[in-house]
């Protein structure tokens, strides 16, 4: 069948794997955006910059302190999360009663500042980050070669996505979060500390971005622009999935990564725009997004 289309299974599987990797990043990042938007009502344009920061913190931990990948995988999201909490306390918390537009403008400005600072100190040529030893090499699956690190990225992001989904949909803490998303005033009147929850949610959402950044560091070069390039696509993913749904954000991320990969096989010229074309179609047919609730 593949031969009929003039495409070898190796090429197809290779692109599907690449799509799955990209989809993993889309899923983790759009998940963070959806969680933040749900509770804070803020479209976090700084998400890409914080993803980039996650990669840079991992690089700095290694270069300046000799702290390796595995510790960075924990420390870097923590550091980015705490940085996010500082942003939330000092700036974002003043915007909750205003229109979405203000949050978008503020976080867009923050993104430019963060990226500008890193560009100023580290240039734009990109810094290398070694794949950790335990994950170098790969497996020959017969029909394709699977690099271990890429398999790890797919597995790690799937676990994080599932864990986040489980926490939000199936636990008591998640019930607080869902309830506060619907009616923060009433949840507060039950004695729950909603501002604290909002602060920690933002910290958690951007920590997810930081985590994705660490995962990305050995694959893509660590580069001040890495977030800006990715975040535009991630926003399209979020628009397609609909802002309201955790599961929607995750599934849309993976599926669109795969769609992009397939497009690269069958119509390479279209691979850069296919997600935006889908976004336009979804907006025409179902403006609230595939998993969104009608307003």
């Amino acid at each position: 069948m593949f031969d009929l289309l003039g495409i070898s299974p190796q090429v197809l599987m290779g692109q599907l794997l690449l799509g799955l990797i990209n989809g993993s990043f889309y899923a983790v990042l759009s998940l963070g955006l959806a969680v933040i938007f749900g509770l804070l009502n803020i479209i976090n344009f700084a998400h890409g910059a914080l993803y980039m920061m996650g990669a840079f913190v991992a690089w700095m931990l290694l270069s300046y302190l000799g702290v390796g990948y595995w510790w960075a995988l924990i420390l870097s999201p923590l550091i980015v999360g705490v940085f996010g909490i500082v942003l939330e306390r000092t700036m974002l918390s003043r915007l909750y009663k205003l229109d979405h537009l203000y949050g978008l403008l503020l976080t867009f400005g923050l993104a430019l500042i963060i990226q500008g600072l890193f560009r100023n100190y580290y240039g734009i040529s990109g810094l290398p980050y070694q794949i950790p030893e335990a994950l170098s090499g790969g497996q020959n699956l017969g029909f394709m070669f699977l690099p271990n690190y890429r398999a790890w990225v797919v597995a790690a992001s799937a676990v994080v996505c599932f864990g986040t989904w489980f926490m939000i949909e199936k636990t008591r803490l998640g019930a607080y979060l869902r309830a506060a998303t619907e009616n923060p005033v009433l949840v507060g009147a039950f004695g729950i500390n909603v501002p604290l929850m909002i602060m920690l949610t933002y910290g958690f959402g951007v920590a997810l971005a930081g985590f994705a950044g660490v995962l990305a560091a050995p694959i893509y070069s660590v580069n001040p622009n890495m977030g800006a390039d990715l975040i535009i696509v991630v926003f399209a993913v979020v628009v397609i999935g609909g802002m309201g749904s955790i599961m929607g954000a995750i599934l849309t991320g993976y599926v669109l990564g795969l769609v992009e990969g397939l497009t690269r096989v069958f119509y390479p010229e279209g691979s850069a725009v296919v997600i935006f074309v889908i976004m336009a179609i979804v907006l025409l047919i179902k403006p609230e997004g595939l998993f969104g609730k009608a307003a």
Partner: peptide, 13 residues
């Protein structure tokens, strides 16, 4: 809360 089950609503406060 519509995103919570009856039991979750009951156990929320």
């Amino acid at each position: 809360f519509s995103s919570l089950s009856v039991e979750e609503n009951l156990m929320l406060p």
